[in-house]
């Protein structure tokens, strides 16, 4: 297992490095001079030149890349244009809000998707199975920002059951949790559908496997067969899918944060783009990439922990 973890970690480092390279290329290739973009149309040439030197834009490209690369790996993502605060601090300040939101989205999707998928598979062909199928497709098809807006209108505005905006009173977990319900539902609802379908399909496949027939031939209780013999296998592709899905949830989080006026990395990027605060945009994208790769790593490690075949294939 340790061997597997180390190799998988190495792969993660390589992916983050590649992401940094691509990000650097994108910044470099975007037309326009970053210094004049940052300073706006009324800046003098002298001001632009000073910022250019400060940002290292007068150096050769590989030197710039090296600075960017080593800086990023040591946590130096540059400074905010106006306040001069380190970008990393700005991003990390907002990160917990987004992570909590994603965690909430995953919780919804897992807590509803896995039991629904299992239930549909066990009662395959029944009305319940078809209902789960139709609902899954429906929630997958509706974009998350539409869910966010309707959730807001129905539960916060019309019914007034839940608060509409913000992340709740700092230091009051109960209030924060109440504020989390609607945005996390908007992030996670589509994934309830994906997971229900995935779990149903892999459950049906596993239940046909000959080792399940063996388990039945030994008279094992049906519950043990479903949950310990079948679900432990059927869940594996779902975990991998979730790891990948975190990328999509991160983009849903941007909408949810804007609609619900919640603090978070998505809101940060949105505001930064409006105010042309590009170092913050770059830094936030990089941090998000690292989070994505890390969560994928976690998903793979969970699969490795659950599946001995994966462990030994590395």
């Amino acid at each position: 297992m340790l061997n597997y973890a180390v190799k998988r970690l190495g792969l993660a480092v390589a992916i983050v490095s590649l992401a940094m390279f691509l990000l650097f290329c994108m910044i470099y290739l975007v037309p326009g001079d970053p210094a004049s973009v940052a300073l706006g149309p009324r800046a003098t040439d002298a001001m632009k030149e000073a910022l250019r030197i400060k940002m290292g834009l007068d150096q050769p490209i590989w030197v710039q890349f090296w600075h960017f690369f080593t800086g990023a790996w040591t946590g130096d993502l540059g400074e905010e244009v106006l306040s001069g605060r380190p970008v990393l601090d700005v991003v990390l300040e907002q990160l917990p809000f987004t992570l909590v939101l994603i965690a909430g989205g995953i919780s919804w999707s897992v807590a509803l998707g896995i039991p629904l998928g299992c239930w549909a598979a066990i009662n395959r062909g029944s009305f319940a199975d078809r209902l789960v199928g139709v609902l899954s497709v429906a929630v997958i098809a509706v974009p998350s920002f539409v869910i966010a807006i309707y959730a807001l209108l129905i539960f916060a505005v019309t019914l007034q059951w839940l608060p509409a905006i913000g992340a709740g009173e700092p230091g009051d977990p109960g209030d924060q949790l109440v504020h989390l319900i609607l945005p996390s539902l908007a992030v996670g609802l589509g994934w309830v559908g994906y997971i229900a379908r995935m779990v149903r399909a892999s459950m049906l496949e596993v239940l046909e496997a000959s080792h399940i027939r063996t388990a039945r031939a030994f008279g094992l209780p049906e519950n043990m067969i479903t949950y310990r013999y079948a679900l432990t296998i059927a869940i594996l592709p779902t975990i991998t899918l979730l790891g990948v899905g975190i990328g999509q949830m991160l983009s849903s989080a941007v909408f949810a944060e804007i609609v619900f006026a919640r603090p978070g990395v998505g809101k940060l990027v949105y505001d930064a783009i409006l105010t042309r605060n590009f170092p913050v945009v770059t830094g936030a994208v990089l941090v998000t990439t690292v989070i994505f790769v890390l969560l994928n790593l976690v998903a793979d490690l969970i699969v490795g922990a659950l599946d001995p075949r994966v462990r030994s294939s590395f």
Binding site: A209, T214, I233
Partner: peptide
């Protein structure tokens, strides 16, 4: 009643040795 019989009184070995055991349980 059949389930109680399977295993202790009547047990079975199937054809496919590769797939007959659960892959994720020791």
């Amino acid at each position: 009643q059949m389930r109680d019989l399977r295993g202790p009184r009547i047990s079975t070995v199937f054809q496919d040795p590769m797939g007959a055991l659960n892959p994720v349980l020791s």
